[in-house]
Amino acid sequence: MTGVQRTVTRTVVVLLAMFVFAFALVPLYDVFCRITGINGKVENTAQAMVRDSIDESRVITVQFVTRAGAGLPWKLEVLNRQVRVHPGAATEVHFAFTNHGSTAGWGRAVPSVSPSEASLYMRKITCFCFQEQRLAAGERLEAPLVFQLTRDLPDDIKTVTLVYTLYPVDDKPLATKATSVVPGGET
């Protein structure tokens, strides 16, 4: 192999590796977020409860905000807008999904935590956000969230906000999916 061929082969290998790396960044980014708490991403699978003793010296305010994304005639409400919890204690909060539409459909509540560092210490033992929800027309569904803030939550975090945005799930058959001409239009 001449020097040129060797150089070209090596650069092409690096090239391909970098292309694969770009796609590997997607899962790596998730891992990275979970390690550092960037962007307030939370685990989307159930976690085991940590058997901490309860730290009664601290009280953390946990707020819940629910929002409607576009395109789904549903409402997501939280029944306790704000709770005060001790680190280490498990707490249950109730949410209610209501389908105001005239057909059944699928929706997903996408969570986000602020401050983002808090996502590292937020353990969700049960959450409706782990899976997509199916609601029949007019159906109302109450769903619990059981969570725990671990005791190693940094001292300077005193308020944690959890925001759930409700989005339609497009790849499931969704009879009321808004399409075409009126009035929102398409892009």
Partner: peptide
């Protein structure tokens, strides 16, 4: 260029 142009290619492919 060898290191980052593939990353650009990756992100626009996504």
């Amino acid at each position: 260029l060898i290191a980052v142009m593939p990353v650009l290619a990756g992100v626009i492919t996504m």
